[in-house]
């Protein structure tokens, strides 16, 4: 039987998280159909159809699906689950919101944040902020999974050309309504797909200093910007930049932590990065225990010196 992968997107492009989750979905071994829901998403559907290993793309369009609210999205998915044994989605905020609704309606337990596909019914997932990894098996009739994108490489976009089929959109929910959104507009790479991330912590001290110190280094390296919870709580950086157990989970080639102590909740979001750099003036900061390169120095002198060395 087949696997249904629900695509996430920002209304313009297919998210990188979907191409990564597709890799996990393919490892299950059944043909993978991709569902693209939204309003005016023909280009996104075409993008999905070009990914390696997609059997079919299903597109549902309508104003009701424009913001991927959980209620209509779950309604849409429920209608087509008969044909699938596995219903999967990347563990993005939109899918974390909607997928448990699907699982509950199907009366099955969801397996959240899958980091490894061990067999078609057996998966590994982190618990306790990644301090333990649990192998779980499901013998239920259907399996509902969210996939931690950072744990899988992206499936290649190529000359594949899967057939695209249209589905009717569900009716609008009578109890839930989209009011508005305040989304970051940044020309920098997205946290989830960036090759390099420069993150700032409480040590930055203010939003002005965060911008003055973190941003130039990030731009010099072509990096995305991240932040610790302390930096976000203090208003130095917006919430969508938080890295950690309860923020974004990232695994870039290079992660540079500036003035971040290395609390377990922060490490949960970045410890799978290939190379970790820590700049911290406290020799005992726990971040040094996982850093490949540690520099014990005041970040306000170290970062300008790095900029000079990079010039």
């Amino acid at each position: 039987m087949a696997t249904l992968l629900i695509a996430d997107h920002d209304g313009v492009r297919l998210g990188d998280a979907t191409a990564k989750a597709l890799t996990a979905a393919r490892q299950i071994g059944a043909p993978v159909d991709v569902l693209v829901a939204g309003d005016g998403v023909a280009a996104i559907a075409a993008q999905a159809a070009s990914l390696a290993g997609v059997a079919r793309v299903l597109v549902a369009e309508g104003a009701v699906l424009a913001n991927l609210l959980a209620e209509p999205l779950a309604e849409l998915v429920i209608r087509i689950t008969d044909a699938y044994t596995v219903i999967a989605a990347p563990a993005t905020s939109a899918m974390k919101n909607a997928l448990p609704r699907v699982a509950a309606r199907l009366d099955v337990m969801q397996i959240s944040d899958v980091t490894k596909v061990l067999a078609a019914d057996t998966f590994e997932r982190p618990i306790y902020a990644g301090n333990a990894l649990e192998t779980v098996r499901s013998d239920e009739a259907k399996r509902v999974l969210t996939i931690r994108a950072a744990a899988f490489p992206a499936s290649e976009a190529g000359d594949a050309n899967a057939p695209i089929e249209a589905l009717p959109a569900p009716a609008a929910s009578s109890t839930s309504r989209f009011v508005g959104a305040d989304l970051s507009t940044s020309t920098r790479p997205e946290l989830g797909s960036a090759r390099i991330i420069v993150s700032g912590g409480r040590a930055l001290g203010s939003a002005e200093k965060f911008d003055a110190v973190v941003a130039p280094l990030a731009d010099r390296l072509g990096a995305a910007i991240g932040a610790s919870r302390a930096a976000v709580d203090s208003g130095y950086a917006p919430n969508d930049l938080q890295v950690g157990q309860t923020g974004k989970i990232v695994a870039p080639e290079l992660y540079v932590a500036l003035g971040i102590s290395g609390a377990i909740q922060h490490l949960a979001g970045m410890k799978d990065s290939k190379v970790i750099v820590a700049i911290n003036k406290d020799p005992d900061a726990p971040i040094f225990q996982i850093a490949d390169y540690g520099l014990e120095e005041d970040l306000f002198t170290a970062v300008p010196a790095m900029m000079d060395a990079l010039a």
């Binding site: 920002d10 913001n67 609210l69 993005t92 905020s93 939109a94 009578s174 109890t175 839930s176 309504r177 989209f178 009011v179 508005g180 959104a181 305040d182 989304l183 970051s184 989830g192 917006p238 919430n239 969508d240 974004k248």
Partner: peptide, 14 residues
């Protein structure tokens, strides 16, 4: 008001 991947989203629920 919800914290979502791209920033903030506001929904109204009955």
């Amino acid at each position: 008001t919800r914290e979502v991947d791209g920033g903030l989203q506001t929904v109204s629920l009955a």
